[in-house]
């Protein structure tokens, strides 16, 4: 199943298919390791519901739902 990262529920895992957006924002995401084929685990949501915290490449990254919306993932993936 294909889902965007902002639609993930707590504790769900997926593998990145594409990263949308453009310019600096997109390259920042790529720089931080959000590249196709990478597994992402939704670890936490902030007390006010946004931003979210994910585990990727062995570290914790936080981003807003608007940025998370740019990341398209295949649900499940490697465990």
């Amino acid at each position: 199943m294909i889902k965007r990262l902002d639609e993930f529920a707590l504790g769900e895992t997926g593998v990145v298919k594409t990263v949308e957006g453009e310019g600096m924002l997109r390259r920042r995401l790529l720089d931080m390791g959000v590249t196709p084929g990478t597994a992402i685990f939704l670890r936490k949501k902030a007390p006010l519901g946004d931003p979210i915290e994910i585990t990727i490449r062995g570290y914790e990254l936080t981003l807003r739902k608007t940025e998370a919306h740019l990341i398209v993932l295949e649900m499940g993936g490697r465990k």
Binding site: L25, M32, Y59, L61, T62, L63, R64
Partner: peptide
């Protein structure tokens, strides 16, 4: 501005 930040241990 976008908010993309590492949460260090």
């Amino acid at each position: 501005a976008p908010f993309i930040m590492e949460l260090p241990e």
